[in-house]
Design a protein around this nucleic acid. Structure first.
Length: 976
RNA sequence: GCCGCGGUGGCGGAAUUGGUAUACGCACACGACUCAAAAUCGUGCGCCGAAAGGCAUGAGAGUUCGAGUCUCUCCCGCGGCACCA
């Protein structure tokens, strides 16, 4: 047989697969079906780099694997063809985006075909074709009819360089996701999709998905559900509005802190609304509001120092919990777009409010005391026992001479802390503290340094009193005046020891769970408790738990328990040319009129000057722009904006199920045959973009009766980035881009496929290393040569001998390795751990070569590897390297084609081993190994272990205290 | 700042449930073949040590007969969110 010529072989099989329609999914699939999908690419003019195919290889392996299990697989590919780069290129070069895009698609398609993917190319879609965007427009009309697409004036993100508005999801750190320009805020009338209507479902239905945890987390955060309460604050005397009664509504998640709400803050946006309806206020307020509303986004980003600004409006409000009058401020740290645009400020329990209060000298009222519950260790609360409540004091005594703190360490058990003691009802806590210090430590000359009027609650098991305690510790800070001490009572002395600790030693010293908290409190005089706890200074609610108090307070003051979401509606208008036109017509008399479905598609005109001016290029096409109203026939104008390209990609997976349908977007039955998608692989960058939009569209279509499911992608995996050889992200400007064409030319598609999968786990980022590729090529050549020798030897046998080898399982020692490999490769493909699947195949090949080397005569090769084993090896390798295995299959004159074979099964019996290697440890250190029969009794194994070389030496003269036996794994002796 | 993920030889990485750390591949060294080179095949390859043995999975502690794996603290890298009340 000649050498492995990848170029000829790969071309040959790719041609055959295409011409014989091997991977075309049937219109009416029978039996088990699967839909394996790649995120379709934007066909950029640069073509593919080696990072692109990573995900495609992964899905291709999976698709080919499934087909060998008799599963009918839909595995399509298409083009997300609308978008800015082509348009921007057009502006520079004058070449129409359609031309550039079609050229790029041809190049992409050629590159993908070169890698031997098993796509059903008959289902290829192109979102920029009228036959596709016809249905994108139909989708828009469906949403419009249900009130899920609407137009409103709102502050929007404007990219000055791309000359278009952007969705929230496309603004990254205040910059345009595409071009990196600083995004401006503008007031514009734009089209939105009502994603917020599905906020709850988008959140809840994440639960059933087999998706990467980080993506689920990102979607959760993006939706940003908060449970809280809506509270109305009545305003007293609003200048210019004296005759009316006004209220400010605020949203809070911490209604339990309302007794500490010492001021209100309204956002500049809300203040502007007040001004718009006639609020009279000072010039200072007006200036602040005007400035804040104007440059908002920009200014906020530049304020890295996080210096809070704001102005007192002079307006006062009534705190509905305390009945007290509190000031109303306007400040830009409050967002106009979240909740009601106003907040109640609780500086004692919110860091932002605290910073603001500190700067402007506003009062701070503490109303929640931290709560600590010991749940582990000896001090853990004993369940099913009564909890006894006590008031207590904690004395923090500092020696100013060396900065150390007075601590006590209990002798009987592990408890370390400051001096503490009980306080009787009505007793002076300072006196109580001094008494405790004197009793427990003998120090007598101590002075009170600070009373922070701070308390915390500790729930623990009191080991001396032997009861559950709920202690409310009030904290007092003392300083030692001198070191004079009285003798300590003998009884006390037996209980605990006195130690002085430096601040840096305290953290490790404290055994009580509030230790860390106390440290923070000591270190930072501005430390505030932002967590929940037990209420204080809150009237009838004092002593109540935060959770309980939220409900009780809401009831008392008539606040409504509500839920807020961070998610905003999806802004879909784009003032650009290269996208699907929005199918709406504006008529003087009829207003906003949807284009009738029969008039779809609204064709994108070709004769447009697409240079951006901030006005949509389509508005400059008179033919396009001037139309008649479909309702009344009067002259009207067409909406000149196009849709965000994410609208195109939000439903493309449905179109693949029925790509040529001219009557409807997709046939519901055909979609039901394949959807939802069984496996979806793509980049994590779409976490809150495409993946959120597609989920929203699917749910909306389901509610309209077009679909029978609500989640589009059941299983999602993200491929990691392939970095350049320098460990940096691959990019043209860095000059570290590797072109797959060169690799395929030199080493072949099969080698590239193997290498990309072998590099490491699919999801992880990993650097490219061209010099490592040769390892994959060598592997394939060894497979090639092995088959070559096998064929020569097999053919050299007599017919009789051949029959014998055909049925023979081969060398007994190899049998088990084959079955091990089948199991491992099968499991690894199922979990997409292709890197270890490949290394297992390599190991088996090493084993085969090792065994065939034992005998030098040519007969041994056929003797060692039987015909079924040889076939199985090719089948296992096929999904990874389809070309070479297809070629070898026919060269070895096996029946049919390798892809028509069923996946090998492993035999559980064959996996069973007769002997096991047992590791022997002495005091946790490996000292030897013994080989014993599988299932050997403990006594037998132990005896063998004791006698093992190296073990005996370590046991000599020692007593075995304990023996740990793990069947089939190890024996561990503990000596002395 | 908060949330998530990660840190293992010279390099990419493996270790499925707490049980023989470094599988597989690259690179490197030596050997065979060769006039020679390439290719191929073979051997070696964490560190210290002559060996016995000791030390090694970012650092430090803890739990355990036994920790890459579990717990805590800290350091570093990557990704996301960032005044969301």
């Amino acid at each position: 047989m000649e050498r492995y010529d990848h170029q000829t072989i790969e071309k040959k099989w790719q041609k055959l697969w295409e011409e014989a329609h091997v991977f075309v999914a049937p219109a009416k699939p029978q039996g088990k079906c699967a839909y394996v999908l790649d995120m379709f690419p934007y066909p950029s003019a640069q073509g593919l780099h080696v990072g692109h195919p990573l995900a495609y290889i992964a899905t291709d392996i999976y698709s080919r694997y499934l087909r060998m299990h008799g599963v009918t697989v839909l595995h399509p590919m298409g083009w997300d063809a609308f978008g800015l780069p082509a348009e921007n290129f057009a502006i520079k070069s004058g070449v129409h985006p359609r031309q550039t895009t079609l050229k790029a698609i041809d190049n992409f398609r050629k590159q993908l075909k070169m890698l031997g993917f098993s796509y059903d190319w008959s289902r290829e879609v192109n979102t920029a074709e009228p036959s596709y965007y016809h249905w994108t427009q139909w989708l828009f009309l469906q949403l419009y009819a249900k009130g899920l697409a609407y137009r409103k004036e709102a502050p929007v993100n404007w990219c000055p360089s791309c000359q278009t508005v952007l969705a929230n999801e496309q603004v990254v750190n205040g910059e345009c996701e595409r071009c990196g320009s600083r995004v401006e805020q503008r007031q514009m009338k734009q089209w939105f999709f009502k994603t917020t209507a599905y906020a709850e479902r988008l959140l809840k239905e994440l639960e059933g998905l087999d998706w990467p945890a980080p993506i689920i987390e990102m979607q959760r955060n993006w939706i940003g559900r908060s449970e809280g309460a809506s509270v109305k604050f009545t305003l007293t005397s609003v200048p210019g509005q004296e005759d009316k009664k006004h209220v400010v509504e605020v949203f809070t998640t911490r209604l339990d802190t309302i007794f500490g709400a010492t001021f209100l803050v309204v956002s500049p946006e809300l203040a502007q609304k007040w001004l718009d309806v006639g609020w009279q206020t000072t010039a200072e307020v007006k200036t602040y509001v005007a400035q804040a509303v104007k440059g908002r986004e920009l200014e906020r980003l530049e304020r890295a120092a996080k210096e809070k600004t704001g102005v007192d409006t002079g307006v006062r409000a009534i705190n509905p919990a305390t009945g007290e009058e509190i000031p109303v401020w306007v400040a830009d740290y409050v967002l106009g777009s979240y909740g009601s645009g106003a907040i109640m400020a609780v500086p004692a329990h919110d860091e932002r409010d605290f910073a603001f209060a500190k700067k402007f000298g506003l009062p701070v009222q503490r109303v929640v005391e931290p709560k600590f519950v010991a749940t582990t260790g000896e001090g853990a609360l004993r369940p099913n026992q009564d909890v006894v409540k006590r008031n207590a004091v904690c004395a923090v005594v500092r020696n100013p001479k060396d900065g150390t703190y007075l601590c006590v360490s209990w002798r009987a058990f592990h408890m370390h802390g400051f001096v503490t003691g009980g306080v009787e009802e009505g007793e002076d806590i300072v006196k109580a503290a001094l008494r405790e210090i004197h009793e427990e430590t003998g120090y007598k000359n101590i002075r009170l340094a600070r009373n922070p009027e701070f308390a915390l609650h500790s729930f623990f098991y009191h080991r001396v009193k032997q009861q559950n305690r709920h202690a409310r510790f009030q904290y007092l800070f003392f300083e030692l005046e001198d070191e004079a001490r009285d003798p300590i009572d003998e009884k006390e002395d037996k209980l605990h020891e006195i130690v002085w600790k430096r601040p840096d030693e305290l953290k490790d010293f404290f055994s009580v769970i509030e230790g860390q908290f106390i440290m923070n409190f000591l270190a930072n005089p501005d430390y505030i408790h932002t967590g929940e706890g037990i209420l204080a200074n809150s009237g009838e609610f004092s002593g109540m738990d935060s959770t309980e108090a939220k409900v009780a307070i809401a009831k008392k003051i008539g606040a409504e328990l509500t839920t807020q979401y961070r998610l905003r509606d999806w802004l879909v208008s784009r003032q650009r040319y290269w996208g699907a036109p929005i199918p709406i017509i504006y008529c003087e008399t009829c207003g906003e009129v949807p284009v009738p479905e029969k008039d779809l598609p609204v064709q994108l005109p070709d004769d447009v000057d697409f240079r951006p001016t901030g006005e949509s290029p389509l508005a400059r096409s008179k033919m396009f722009h001037n139309v008649v109203c479909p309702k009344c026939g009067a002259s009207a104008r067409r909406e000149s904006d196009t849709m965000d390209t994410f609208v195109d990609s939000s439903w493309y997976f449905l179109r693949y199920c029925d790509p040529q349908n001219n009557e409807v977007a997709f046939d519901k039955k055909k979609v039901a045959q394949w959807c939802p998608v069984s496996l979806y692989v793509g980049g994590a960058e779409h976490a809150v973009l495409h993946l959120m939009y597609a989920r929203f569209i699917t749910k909306a279509l389901q509610d309209m009766g077009h679909l029978a499911f609500s989640e589009p992608f059941l299983k999602l995996r993200n491929q990691g980035l392939i970095l350049g050889e320098d460990g940096q992200k691959m990019s043209k400007s860095r000059g570290n881009v590797i072109n797959p064409d060169d690799i395929v030319q030199e080493y072949g598609a099969d080698t590239l496929r193997l290498y990309e999968m072998f590099m490491g786990p699919l999801e992880e980022a990993k650097p490219w290393n061209t010099s490592s590729i040769v390892g994959m090529r060598r592997f394939l050549e060894r497979v090639w040569n092995l088959c070559d020798r096998w064929k020569v030897n097999y053919d050299g046998r007599s017919k009789n001998d051949q029959a014998f080898y055909d049925s023979e399982v081969g060398d007994g020692r190899l049998t088990r390795f084959f079955h091990d490999t089948i199991k491992k490769v099968t499991d690894d493909i199922e979990t997409m751990r292709y890197n270890t699947a490949i290394s297992t195949l390599m190991s088996l090949l090493n084993k085969i070569q090792q065994f065939t080397k034992e005998g030098t005569t040519t007969t041994t090769i056929t003797k060692r590897i039987s015909l079924p084993q040889c076939k199985n090896y090719l089948k296992l390798l096929y999904p990874f390297a389809p070309h070479i295995t297809s070629e070898l299959w026919v060269r070895l004159q096996f029946d049919g084609n390798v892809w028509e074979q069923s996946w090998p099964m492993y035999d559980k019996e064959a996996l069973r081993q007769e002997t096991a290697t047992i590791a022997v440890q002495v005091n946790g250190k490996l000292r030897g190994q013994v080989i014993v029969p599988v299932g050997a009794a403990e006594a037998e194994v132990e005896a063998a272990a004791k006698a093992a070389e190296g073990v005996a030496r370590h046991l000599a003269g020692k007593t075995i205290v304990r023996t740990v036996f793990v069947p089939g794994k190890l024996v561990s002796f503990v000596v002395e």
